[in-house]
Nucleic acid binder design. Structure first.
Lengths: 147, 147
DNA sequence: CCTACAATTGCATATTTATTCAAATACAAA
DNA sequence: TTTGTATTTGAATAAATATGCAATTGTAGG
């Protein structure tokens, strides 16, 4: 495992177990774990991990991982299976076995990653409407996690 | 309703229907809706609404309303719930409470303003297909009249 | 009306985060 | 090994966001 990957993992760990308000603070915590980097590098790491700085409602900020499903994508490599998904313009159509469409659509909805805005299902067809701003590749990956 | 509340509402609406990358951009959109403020004030509004700037995975940022589940945990007060309308390409998706989608879709259909060509409803999701040639803003307004 | 207090705002600036660019490092192929 | 290419990084800086403070506006109670 490369140093960088280890560091990204460490960042995830810290974010999940401690209240981190800014990057300087996170830098210090990383230092105690043996990772000495600059704010510039940390900023890039945070971007790659899709970590966001959120308002905590009092008067502070907290860094958080956005969504458990997105979080897994960097460390856990999974085989790329592309089921019967096909794009048309900004829409995606998924063909299922008869009767399965609503069930699968419901699965997608309930764990909906941010890439997916909504689904509408018939009997063996699901129409998936992605949010704007995502690439087809990312959307397909997101969907593939449920199939 | 105070001007400020109206503005907060407008911000929620914009955030949910458009891809906003930074506060300057949001300032401009607010200006077109008649709210002229400075970045300082917008920053405060965003803080109050607990809106967060997230990485979108490509190379940009998006402002998003917080995850409702996180919201509940440390705050008694929630921002006003704006009807959940979101655009994706030339389509509009409306999220409703479970079981309400068909009813609302029917309401929209029967009073259909010219902006709206058709609707398709599932259980808690309505897909709205607008006529060509209308601006998002006008379509959103037309739909808002039914919610 | 006035007065006192709270809420809201803009300006200027502080703070925080992102990015440019060049250097360093890792990696693969020969 | 050496060469060529891609990745990672820090220093400096740009860009974006937050905030202290004073001025303004709103608001309730006389």
């Amino acid at each position: 495992m490369s140093v960088r990957k280890e560091r990204l993992d460490a960042i995830c760990g810290i974010i999940q177990t401690e209240v981190i308000c800014n990057q300087e603070e996170l830098l210090k915590r990383l230092e105690t774990k043996g990772f000495t980097i600059t704010q510039a590098t940390l900023s890039r790491d945070i971007k790659q991990l899709k970590i966001a700085r959120m308002h905590d409602g009092n008067d502070n900020y907290v860094y958080r991982l956005p969504d458990p499903s997105l979080q897994a994508s960097h460390s856990t490599e999974r085989p790329k299976i592309h089921p019967n998904i096909e794009f048309s313009g900004n829409l995606i159509v998924i063909k299922t076995r008869p009767g399965y469409a609503m069930g699968i659509a419901s699965d997608i909805d309930s764990n909906a990653p941010h890439e997916i805005l909504a689904t509408i299902a018939g009997d063996d067809t699901i129409l998936v409407i992605p949010r704007e701003g995502y690439k087809r590749e990312n959307i397909a990956e997101a969907i593939a996690r449920f199939i």
